[in-house]
Design a protein around this nucleic acid. Structure first.
Length: 303
DNA sequence: AAATGGGACAACCGCCTAAAT
DNA sequence: TATTTAGGCGGTTGTCCCATT
């Protein structure tokens, strides 16, 4: 036997909240608190809403000191840096921005920041096509455009891939995937407590979050075919890295770090350094390498 | 003036983990 | 121990509003 059902899904109200409903919820919580039980809350108040819906409404809209819109350049910077560092962990990113909710940050990223970056990318692609048109006579224009369109569409995913490559919790650090990484991986199964980018509360997050991240990245690794650094698919990773680098660093700057075997940078992406017995860089850290990525990112980005 | 398209944002959906039974 | 739900989260969708045609 489990718990009782949270609500009658046939009778709960859905859709936009009315001012009356907002007032009822706000007044009750301000007076009595949530009581640690969102499911019971709507029944106490007399709202025909699901507890989950009440929780969301309170956290995203009614809660005191909520800020909407008008993100500052500083907030843009924080969002971008954390997105590069940890990916789409909106609740964690929002926790760094007082008054902002994860939903707000997520919407802002999806509607503004991401498009700003992709817009830049498109402009640069157009310029690139112009300047290289003469040199690409062997490649049909249609083929080239298709390829570049594909890159634009996946640019953000590749930023995330970059994060994975730098992330000790990523698939390439998973001993199940790459047994050779076991020692280093095990020594880095918790987040770096010296991080300056994460609140004290978040530093104390349980290992379940690590597992969550690990699982998510294992899933993506399976999808992307990132089985092993020595596998045939690894050339795809190398190509994606090169493209990502072009995106972040711009043309003519691919040689920022030493290249290995026609594209792989030694030392720039720390997961390669396992062979040398070096410890990986925590995803929470802003090392000189990740700072360099961010600086270039912001220059591309205009933030 | 009406139709259309896109941006912004609120709300919902589905999944996962922890906890209750 | 197995089953079921609550809470939390990220992804997606729906809707409103405004600009453009």
């Amino acid at each position: 036997m489990g718990r009782a059902p949270c609500c009658d899904k046939a009778t709960v109200k859905k859709g936009p909240w009315s001012p009356e409903e907002d007032a009822m919820l706000k007044n009750y919580i301000e007076e009595h608190g949530t009581g640690g039980n969102w499911i019971a809350l709507p029944h106490k108040i007399g709202l025909k809403r699901c507890g989950k819906s009440c929780r969301l409404r309170w956290l995203n809209y009614l809660r005191p000191n909520i800020k909407h819109g008008d993100f500052t350049p500083e907030e843009d910077s924080i969002i971008c840096s954390l997105y590069i560092s940890i990916g789409s962990r909106w609740s964690i990113i929002a926790a760094q921005l007082p008054g902002r909710t994860d939903n707000d940050v997520k919407n802002y990223w999806n509607t503004k920041l991401k498009k700003r970056l992709l817009g830049r990318r498109k402009d640069r692609d157009a310029h690139h096509r112009q300047s290289t048109a003469a040199a690409s006579s062997e490649m049909s224009t249609e083929t080239m455009n298709d390829g570049e369109r594909a890159l634009s569409a996946s640019a953000m995913e590749r930023i995330q891939l970059c994060m994975q490559l730098q992330n000790p919790l990523g698939p390439h650090h998973n001993p199940l995937v790459w047994p050779g990484c076991r020692a280093a991986s095990q020594s880095n199964t918790s987040f770096n407590s010296n991080s300056s980018n994460v609140t004290v509360a978040e530093q104390g997050q349980s290992s379940s979050m690590n597992e969550h991240l690990m699982n998510a990245r294992l899933d993506r690794a399976a999808i992307n075919g990132l089985g092993s650094p020595s596998s045939a698919e690894n050339s795809n990773v190398i190509n994606m890295e090169a493209e990502l680098e072009e995106l972040l660093y711009g043309e003519g700057n691919q040689g920022k770090a030493g290249m290995i075997d026609g594209g792989v940078q030694q030392g720039d992406v720390d997961w390669w350094s396992y062979d040398q017995g070096k410890l990986p860089v925590s995803c929470w850290d802003f090392t000189p390498e990740t700072n360099a990525v961010f600086q270039d990112y912001t220059s591309v980005y205009d933030i």
